[in-house]
């Protein structure tokens, strides 16, 4: 119930409110690669997260991961492990850490940090000082990943 209300509030009030309560990328607190608190300050919406996951201009997670929950999407990449059952293998905080900045969990990984906006070399014009996903999109993806059970 609580979750439903939080989602409804976020949807109604929109991105401005979500951003106001959000933690800046450089202020996200990692503990052994995991991030306990929501980076947007509100709960994620799994249905929106599913779209962010597939969208080539947003998560484009399918570039590197197979996800059997999305058979309607053609071409699942195989650079990373399959995400089938990711919601059973990892806790919410661990998933948040992996999506926010995977390098905190997997040293030297090719997987981009999706909520990182500094320390990047030669970002293309228009993407300077911007993270790939915003705080709410990160939370939405995490909500979706949690639905991927074994």
């Amino acid at each position: 119930m609580k979750l439903i209300i939080a989602t409804a509030v976020a949807t109604v009030l929109g991105a401005t409110v979500a951003m106001a309560g959000s933690t800046k990328p450089q202020d996200v607190a990692f503990e052994d690669g995991a991030v306990a608190a929501s980076v947007s300050g509100v709960a994620g919406d799994a249905a929106v997260g599913r779209q962010v996951f597939a969208n080539r201009k947003l998560g484009n997670c399918l570039a590197c991961h197979v996800n059997s929950e999305m058979p309607e999407q053609s071409f699942h990449g195989e650079v990373g492990p399959t995400l089938d059952g990711a919601g059973s293998r990892w806790s919410e905080a661990e998933l948040r850490g992996i999506v926010t900045n995977s390098k905190q969990t997997f040293e030297g990984t090719i997987m981009p940090g999706f909520y990182v906006d500094s320390g990047l070399f030669r970002p293309l014009g228009g993407f300077e000082d911007k993270s790939i996903l915003n705080a709410q999109q990160v939370e939405d993806v995490i909500a979706y990943l949690q639905t991927l059970k074994e």
């Binding site: 650079v79 090719i110 981009p112 940090g113 990182v116 990047l120 070399f121 030669r122 970002p123 293309l124 993407f127 911007k130 790939i132």
Partner: peptide, 16 residues
């Protein structure tokens, strides 16, 4: 490593 995705040539063409 370069760009917003922070990947080097080697990340795709050597490692993968």
């Amino acid at each position: 490593r370069v760009g917003q995705l922070d990947i080097a040539c080697s990340g795709c063409h050597e490692d993968n």
